[in-house]
Design a protein around this nucleic acid. Structure first.
Lengths: 157, 157
DNA sequence: TCAATCAGGACCAAGTCGGTCCTCTTTGGC
DNA sequence: GCCAAAGAGGACCGACTTGGTCCTGATTGA
């Protein structure tokens, strides 16, 4: 299914939590408590985000994690990419030019790129800053659109 | 990762193949041959698409599958939904109101809806008709947009 | 020196996916 | 009326991915 892993899900929650207190530094246990997520998981994810360069860490006593960039500069797409690699809706859009054997005959190949761009464009259009505050308060138009989506065929009797 | 299952991937390929020959009827073996996908898989997927109402099937000798709607009326989102259920980027946007236990404290809950809408909007904006022909030939603007996506932070040294 | 923190793996149970196969039912042609 | 071609519907299994835990270091401030 088109679904983020829980790790990424949690990662966005954590980043949002940090973003909500501008520039503050949090320890893993603090974040685990505030988000009600299991500490080992939180710790694991924070490490990954640090390795990816989205967080900066301070070791030792009085240590913790803080954002490496302003919330407005970090998009949801970036966080996803940090935790699970480049967004690739399908194997055949992955950069690894591992030549899918059907490439020559596959008529949709080029269109996968397009779908992928649509999705990652949508995700790149949402910043951490926006994630940190409830949606309601924002007067926003939805990000991706095109006239009324083709009405989904009703389930046949 | 944000990735479609192969079943869905193949499903879109198959639907596109059928769409490319307007209204024609194909047998599973024919489609397997044209797309170079394993027959049992093809068969399985066609059955699922039929059950979902996107294809109509004709049993018996001279049987086969054909589209239930015009290619322009079927969106990629519809196909995905048919094969793997409603698009839900995260557990907490699933309709089943299975009350995630953190709901009260989760600050991003409402924003997941938004991400989900962005993604499904992007997918709903691409029709099967477009998938059936190579991208190059179309003079299209990308589907999902918003001004220049916030530049992704460069990987830190 | 010690306790608090982060870093980096190893490890495992459970679930999901990709793929195959088998047995029915339906239908058209001879 | 019989047979072959085709779809319908499952059962089944191996392999991989995920979610989650735990352990052992390395740093650093008090």
């Amino acid at each position: 299914m088109i679904r983020l892993t829980k790790q990424t899900d949690y990662g966005i929650v954590l980043m949002s939590q940090i973003a909500a207190s501008h520039g503050a530094q949090f320890t893993a246990p603090e974040l685990a408590q505030e988000t009600h997520l299991p500490l080992p998981m939180v710790s694991k994810i924070l490490k990954a985000l640090t390795r990816a360069g989205l967080l900066v860490s301070q070791r030792g006593a009085k240590g913790g994690y803080a954002l490496a960039y302003a919330p407005a500069e970090i998009s949801v797409a970036t966080i996803i990419a940090a935790l699970e690699g480049p967004i690739a809706i399908t194997e055949c859009v992955e950069e690894s030019e591992e030549a899918c054997s059907y490439e020559a005959t596959c008529r949709v190949r080029s269109n996968w790129q397009r779908i992928n761009q649509a999705v990652s464009g949508a995700l790149a259009g949402i910043s951490l800053e926006e994630m940190a505050e409830p949606w309601k308060t924002r007067s926003q138009v939805p990000v991706a659109l095109r006239p009324p989506a083709p009405r989904p065929p009703a389930p046949r009797p």
